[in-house]
């Protein structure tokens, strides 16, 4: 039983890692007033660029760095459409997802061809923080990226609530007109937020290919981006709550896959669809009271 729980906690952290990265990325975008539905495609793009980068350069960290840059470009493209041109955020975000997915598939075939054997790399090793402890050892045998993800949560919280930059991000998300009147460039701030956001989303995707799998499969992201959109609402647009939401989701998923292994008959599809159902329920109960940024979805036009 003890082993089961320890294993469960460790798996929860592993599953939560990409969600934390990508949800924090989405948080930057949404707090600045832009719903970035490009998240699913940007994660997929990050998984591809990370894998291709790592396997071409031979360095896993270089792969992660390239994914970060690739994701920032994806966020920049989103900013040209939704911030500079003021295109409807829903449609431009979905367009980004479609484009980044297509580009990744194209690039993967172009570089690796059509292989019978899936190309693979030796992924990251896990880092044991407590090699001498029987309990903490297995729990904190995680990828470095997992530790970075957890560390990022207080960092993002600090940036958003304790720095001028964060204050400006939040104010362009809540009241761009007033922020503009105060002499702050709304377009530039939203662009920066989207660029940071895209980078974090892509690192979340790259974690899947470079750390967890060591390969790139076409189903690698499998709707995790949409889970993050749900987590943001669940977390009420607050960084600290992103951690709990991601851990809860990771925990449910880790639990169901372990119960399935034990042969207990469970409708695992129900478990997997829970985050979506819970989010819709949360939206229903909260209704208009959810504290979404006031200017979310509204393109800003300077007259």
């Amino acid at each position: 039983m003890g082993d089961f729980v320890i294993d469960l906690i460790a798996a929860t952290l592993r599953i939560a890692t990409p969600l934390i990265f990508a949800t924090l990325g989405e948080l930057f975008c949404e707090r600045a007033g832009v719903l970035n539905l490009g998240i699913e495609g940007t994660m997929f793009w990050g998984a591809f660029v990370g894998f291709a980068g790592a396997s071409l350069t031979g360095s896993l960290w270089l792969g992660i760095l390239l994914a970060l840059i690739g994701g920032m470009l994806s966020g920049f493209l989103m900013s040209i459409l939704s911030v500079r041109l003021g295109v409807n955020q829903h449609v431009s975000g979905l367009g980004i997802t479609l484009l980044m997915t297509a580009l990744s598939l194209f690039g993967f075939r172009l570089i690796f061809g059509e292989n019978r054997v899936l190309p693979s790399i030796a992924p990251f090793q896990q880092l044991n923080l407590f090699p001498n402890s029987a309990i903490l050892g297995p729990i904190f045998s995680q990828y470095t990226l997992t530790y970075i993800a957890i560390f990022l949560i207080p960092v993002v919280s600090w940036i958003l609530y304790r720095t001028t930059f964060g204050l400006n991000i939040r104010s362009v998300g809540d009241n761009p007109e007033a922020t503009d009147a105060a002499g702050i460039n709304v377009y530039r701030l939203r662009t920066i937020a989207l660029v940071i956001g895209g980078g974090l989303m892509a690192v979340g995707g790259a974690y899947l290919s470079v750390a967890q799998l060591g390969s790139f499969t076409f189903g690698i992201v499998a709707g995790r981006g949409w889970v993050c959109i749900a987590l943001i609402i669940f977390a009420n647009w607050q960084p600290l709550k992103v951690l709990w939401g991601s851990l809860l989701f990771g925990g449910v998923q880790a639990l169901q896959s372990r119960l399935q292994l034990t042969g207990i008959k469970l409708p695992y599809e129900l478990f997997l669809s829970l985050p979506y159902i819970v989010t819709i329920l949360a939206l229903t109960l909260a209704g208009r009271n959810v504290s979404a940024p006031a200017a979310l979805l509204k393109p800003y036009k300077r007259e």
């Binding site: 431009s92 997915t101 580009l103």
Partner: peptide, 20 residues
């Protein structure tokens, strides 16, 4: 790669949105 078709479609969407 056959996925060029997907790239063309999604690029077309974004270009059209921008031009509109």
């Amino acid at each position: 790669p056959v996925y060029l078709g997907d790239v063309v479609q999604s690029t077309l969407l974004l270009v059209t949105l921008g031009m509109l």
